[in-house]
Design a protein around this nucleic acid. Sequence first.
RNA 1: CGGGGCAUGGCGCAGUCUGGUAGCGCACCUGUUUUGGGAACAGGGGGUCGCAGGUUCGAAUCCUGCUGCCCCGACCA
Length: 445
Amino acid sequence: MRLTRYFLPILRETPKEAEIVSHRLMLRAGMIRQQAAGIYSWLPLGKRVLDKVNRIIREEQDRSGAIELLMPTIQSADLWRESGRYDDYGKEMLRIEDRHEREMLFGPTNEEMITEIFRASVRSYRDLPLNLYHIQWKFRDEVRPRFGVMRSREFLMKDAYSFDLDIEAARAAYNRMFVAYLRTFHRFGLKPVPMRAESGPIGGDMSHEFIILAETGESEVYCDRALLDMPIPSADIDFRSDLAPIVEEWTTPYAATDEKHDPAAFEALDESRRIAARGIEVGHIFYFGTKYSEPMGAVVAGPDGVEVPVHMGSYGIGPTRVVAAIIEASHDDDGIIWPKSVAPFDVALLNLKAGDQTCDAMCADIEQRLDSAGLSCLHDDTDARAGAKFATMDLIGLPVQVIVGPRGAAAGEVEMKVRATGERETMSVDGLMAMLQAQFGDAAS
RNA sequence: CGGGGCAUGGCGCAGUCUGGUAGCGCACCUGUUUUGGGAACAGGGGGUCGCAGGUUCGAAUCCUGCUGCCCCGACCA
């Protein structure tokens, strides 16, 4: 993609409303634009990141056996009356009326709707286990939206819903999502820390928040340092096998958010292992049994022919928030540093002297060879000064910068800079291509 | 929902106290010279000063009401 033909509205100065680094950088890098309190447009660069995040989420959900569908944003109030939540949900729910004065709402979540879909079609335990998910916009009319897309009113959510015959099977479904979440966040370049969370009226231990440690996190969290170095289950893990040992391993070390914090248990840890920090909640999974299936009549016939309400769980990831969390976790004074897996483009190509025949020809050649190699590239072919180009590319944080200047081009050489480390190296174009293929070869997982 | 603050061109701001032709920096457009770390010069375009009333010969500025947005706290992916 040539920058002269792209839409990348970079801001040199920071809009005054942006307080935290991810919000500042997303505005400055032209990723998002605010439309109203807690409501954002995603501009092309941001959209590319969001798409990559969603793609990884899909891959890991699918790998775990979940099945994607798509439910609408607008729901009928009647559905929510069945579960009793229409009156309970309060002012966070955006209620609207259509032209026939029917009561509708912009969905803050989809338990009711998925339960309705399930009960309409599933009759037998033999269709279980089932896990259905979608990635769809949600709206929660937050009292105080803030921090850009970190806490917005309209936000994207991947929400999955599992259906099982009994609690043992539901636990297995929970464990599959638990492992899928570890893998998903790992692929974003993040270190996920599962923390025991409030599990509501059902009780039990089946509710975890996935937390990313960050100074700008919204909640106080406490955990054992060991959790930051635990091995992430590999891509070839068998989701049909018993995953309980992995979940056990990950939930044994101390980890709790503020509300579940047990100072005594925490103090019992060796001081070098204690982490008291702030965290960003990027995912939340929980089991809620028959809370919806019972009132809404989502039942299946068991092996004995008797109908029983299904046991359900729900599993959420906020992709829009994840984008902000990645930036919180990976940036420096100059701008964003994208992990390869979610970078909007793989390579930044800087033509330091657009209009110079040698530079232009070399850049065109590199652009084409990158394309053939399956690598995406943002090619700064503007006539801006070198300094401005470096600043822009550092700001938007693509993993690798390829610098083509008149001196090097005359000698058939380019410079390659790794954004994360700042390392620079001069090489031939052939050498560059070999280097890039090595760099990005393993980026698939 | 309680407390605080802001609203002037795309972004950042001055001007408001003390009413008198709407300004600055960046960005943008044209031209020239430039080109290896946010270029220089010259010329140019763009603003119902958040909205509605009021006071006044005259309102960005004073008065009243409203709206939007941000920050701090209590709640949430």
